[in-house]
């Protein structure tokens, strides 16, 4: 026993040395990166603010619009929590008595609690997804450390409670289905603004319409997408994706927006895949912002999910 403890002490000493050597480099680097990106966000917002004061209608740049829309859709508050219900359907269009009718089939449901913590607005974020339904995935946890830098892949983990296994998941194509639904990973955690070229193609009484064209087209299945952004609060209300032939094939809609605390929040959204003939409805409930949340985005809480995630 004594011999064992002595050997462990030696191992711990070696470990502490390697940790202290390793820690200085990357952390210092991360600080550099974050300082840079914060300043860029501030400058864009500053520019937008002054333009707005002079002439709110015309002078707002497209960069300012998409930045505000990004913050509105993905960065409300310092953190957030919601229970999510998903209904995934295949559908068929049928003509009955001369009327078009939509028939759904093969319905699947998902229910999970999602916790989000922002490291900085418009920048890195963490997500913690605790599954409730269906029964075979109950208590599984999916955790993401999202990196805003497009050259750095997100870090993703999956916890399998029946094996007590913390699995590291290889960074994947972000345009892959999230939990088998029509929502993609990128729809849930946000597509980096740096990926696309943005053009303001129309301004209506209610909406800014922004066309987004990917800078590198090989990595995605769409050729461009248009977003209708609510002029009052900058909430993206509708996204329409077009394929290489210019055909509309995918639509994401914000069906219902409510104000939670002081934050406008999408509480019901829908994505339709016209090619696959399937759609997914996503409803949010028990929404809270700025909750008292420790740093739960670690292995500790994968193995023992916090009360905030379970309830």
């Amino acid at each position: 026993m004594l011999k064992f403890l002595m050997k462990m002490t030696v191992l711990m000493m070696i470990f502490s040395w390697s940790v202290s050597v390793g820690a200085a480099g990357p952390e210092a680097m991360a600080e550099g990166v974050s300082a840079e990106s914060t300043s860029s966000v501030v400058s864009v917002e500053g520019a937008a603010g002054s333009a707005e004061e002079k002439n709110p209608e015309k002078k707002l740049t497209v960069e300012a619009i998409v930045n505000k829309a990004n913050l509105m859709a993905y960065y409300q508050g310092d953190n957030g929590k919601a229970q999510v219900n998903m209904i995934i359907n295949d559908y068929e269009e049928k003509i009955e008595d001369g009327k078009k009718k939509i028939v759904t089939k093969n319905t699947r449901t998902r229910e999970f609690n999602i916790l989000r913590g922002d490291i900085e607005d418009g920048g890195d974020q963490n997500y913690f997804v605790y599954f409730i339904k269906p029964a075979d995935v109950r208590k599984m946890v999916f955790m993401v450390h999202k990196h805003a830098d497009i050259d750095k892949d997100d870090d993703r983990w999956l916890y399998l409670p029946s094996l007590d296994l913390v699995k590291r998941i290889a960074a994947g194509d972000k345009r892959t289905s999230f939990v088998g639904s029509d929502f993609l990973y990128e729809d849930v955690s946000g597509r980096s603004l740096q990926e696309d070229k943005h053009e303001l193609i129309e301004t209506t009484d209610e909406f800014y319409v922004v066309k987004n064209t990917p800078k590198t087209s090989q990595s995605v299945e769409f050729s461009y997408y248009n977003v209708r952004i609510d002029k009052k609060n900058f909430m993206p209300m509708k996204m329409e994706f077009y394929d290489s032939k210019g055909k509309l094939y995918r639509i994401i809609e914000s069906l219902q927006v409510e104000t939670v605390g002081k934050y406008p929040t999408v509480v019901k959204s829908k994505v339709t895949d016209l090619n696959k003939q399937s759609f997914t409805l996503m409803e949010f409930s028990k929404i809270e912002y700025n909750i008292d949340l420790a740093d739960i985005f670690t292995e500790r809480y994968l193995r023992k999910p916090p009360r905030e995630a379970v309830r």
């Binding site: 390697s18 940790v19 390793g22 990357p26 991360a30």
Partner: peptide, 8 residues
């Protein structure tokens, strides 16, 4: 450390 998981 920077999402490199080290363990003994």
């Amino acid at each position: 450390i920077e999402n490199y998981e080290l363990a003994l």
